[in-house]
């Protein structure tokens, strides 16, 4: 079910997904304009009520700009768009998004972004580590991201953002089926 950015309410859903896609041309900052779209107020209310929210790539950037996740995503350290397959490690305690995956599992996923360099102040990074809220780490950092962060979760455990694309790795015909495990975990968590 797709929801128009100008909507002020969400339909009855179990999960809100914010996909990749350079919304509004990433003008100003990546995700900045999309984060102020009318529908985002409804997404913030949905998240506050415990609804699961998954932000992928541009969606992760939007979640940071909205304040649902801490930190921000800046231009890749190398200054170049990075489009390739890589491996991320599942770290931290199980979440609704990774419950079916063992700690230390490796996922083979594609990335395609210009702004994947996660930044936050040291205090925030320390807190994310201490609270087990770093969920995905790059095995080989492609963009300069602080502490190899590829994905994080909010303190309530219902809002997750990541730069790699699990939805583009849901079958061997796509190159990998590892991403499907994220959605399988979610379906289990949602009953």
């Amino acid at each position: 079910m797709r929801v128009w950015h100008g909507e002020s309410e969400l339909p009855e859903v179990d999960l809100v997904g914010l996909p990749g896609g350079f919304a509004y041309g990433d003008y100003l900052r990546c995700g900045a304009i999309a984060a102020r779209a009318p529908v985002m107020a409804a997404v913030v209310r949905f998240a506050a009520a415990g609804g699961r929210v998954l932000g992928i790539c541009n969606g992760f950037q939007v979640l940071c700009e909205t304040g649902l996740l801490p930190g921000a995503l800046l231009a890749n350290e190398g200054g170049r768009f990075v489009s390739r397959w890589l491996d991320v490690e599942v770290v931290g305690p199980p979440t609704d998004f990774t419950g079916g995956l063992p700690h230390g599992a490796s996922l083979h996923l594609p990335v395609a972004h210009h702004d994947g360099n996660y930044v936050a102040d040291d205090e925030t990074l320390d807190r994310l580590e201490a609270e087990g809220r770093i969920v995905f780490r790059y095995r080989r950092n492609p963009n300069g991201s602080a502490r190899d962060i590829a994905g994080i979760i909010n303190d309530q455990g219902n809002v997750l953002g990541l730069m790699p694309h699990p939805e583009r790795a849901v079958g061997m015909e796509l190159g990998s089926a590892d991403g499907a495990q994220v959605f399988r975990s979610l379906m289990e968590a949602l009953g």
Binding site: L28, C64, V119
Partner: peptide, 9 residues
Amino acid sequence: DQLLANPVI
């Protein structure tokens, strides 16, 4: 505060 700058960065 609300849009033009992001206080995180």
